[in-house]
Simulated assay, not measured.
Amino acid sequence: MSLLDHLTLLTPLDGLAALFLLLCWVGIGWRIEHPSAAKPSVTLLMARYQTDWMVAAITRENRIVDATLLSTLRLGTSFFASTCLLAIGGLLALVGNTQPLETVAEELTATDAPAFVWQIKLLLVVLLLAQAFLKFVWSHRIYGYGTVLLGAIPNDPSDPLTKTRAEQAGALNIRAALNFTRGLRAMYFALGGLAWLLGAVPLIVASAGVCWLLWSREFASTPRGILTRLDG
């Protein structure tokens, strides 16, 4: 059978469910990164503090604390990148041998689907995790750039390069945090994508649930309330 013949094993509802997940992923990402001016997301609120942090570092001759904080942020990206690799490896092992998965899924859904169907559903999750891995790795690298810029900030506040270097370091940290957040979003939707193993409707429900969860954490969470109260 050709690839197109294999794809016909999926129902139209399966295709719509997978498309819905991808639209939710892209849509909520755009909404978080391009919110209205009246209601900024937590991601944008925190971005303001990235530059403030680096500007505040100008007056600190000893920047060990700042370097330690950046190192801690890099460790977080390393942890999640490693987690993605482990998850991808496990899923690829299942793609190569879907028999254990078929047995469990058939008991839960009472359906008997060909191995290719299970492989396609797993590959969607693998692709999302691969995207998350790449974002975490890039975030790790940018945090490294930010650390170098932190070290390049002159100790003399009157130096014309001081504020420029601080703003550059802040901008790099913002990009690193943005990519880290994108990686986390991809992981959230990868977890939601596992619901496809139970069927198209569970995938739609899980996608909507993940979308709502991400929206609530960015626009209706306690941390956001704290940040906006402090800003006010």
Results as ranks from 00 to 15, higher is better:
158 S>F: 03
101 L>N: 07
123 L>G: 01
173 N>S: 08
172 L>R: 10
74 R>F: 07
74 R>P: 01
193 G>Y: 07
130 A>K: 07
176 A>K: 06
81 A>I: 10
192 G>T: 00
114 P>Y: 08
92 L>R: 09
192 G>W: 00
150 L>F: 01
83 T>S: 14
80 F>C: 11
84 C>D: 15
186 A>L: 01
134 L>S: 08
110 A>M: 09
130 A>M: 05
71 S>D: 10
99 Q>Y: 12
161 L>W: 11
117 V>K: 04
139 S>T: 02
150 L>R: 00
186 A>N: 02
92 L>F: 12
157 P>L: 05
182 R>V: 08
135 K>M: 14
189 F>N: 01
181 T>C: 08
94 L>R: 09
158 S>T: 15
120 I>E: 03
94 L>Y: 10
160 P>D: 11
157 P>M: 01
120 I>G: 06
78 S>G: 10
128 L>K: 00
102 E>T: 13
120 I>P: 00
97 N>F: 12
191 L>V: 12
126 V>M: 04
107 E>I: 09
80 F>N: 00
159 D>N: 15
152 A>L: 15
76 G>W: 04
96 G>K: 08
106 E>R: 14
121 K>L: 06
140 H>R: 11
117 V>N: 07
189 F>M: 09
153 I>F: 07
112 D>M: 10
142 I>R: 08
174 I>D: 01
141 R>T: 13
76 G>E: 10
104 V>H: 10
161 L>P: 03
78 S>A: 13
168 Q>S: 12
103 T>C: 09
113 A>G: 03
87 A>Y: 11
121 K>C: 04
78 S>Y: 11
177 A>P: 04
68 T>Y: 10
102 E>L: 15
119 Q>H: 02
67 A>S: 14
82 S>D: 12
107 E>Y: 12
190 A>N: 05
79 F>R: 10
146 G>D: 05
104 V>F: 13
155 N>R: 13
139 S>Y: 02
98 T>R: 03
160 P>N: 09
171 A>G: 10
81 A>N: 09
169 A>T: 05
67 A>V: 02
98 T>M: 07
73 L>F: 03
188 Y>E: 03
114 P>I: 05
148 V>W: 07
158 S>K: 12
91 L>R: 06
153 I>E: 02
186 A>M: 06
147 T>R: 01
80 F>S: 04
91 L>G: 08
67 A>M: 05
97 N>Q: 12
104 V>P: 01
100 P>Q: 12
68 T>C: 02
83 T>Y: 12
150 L>N: 07
187 M>E: 00
158 S>R: 13
162 T>C: 14
76 G>A: 10
115 A>G: 03
152 A>H: 11
142 I>C: 03
129 L>K: 03
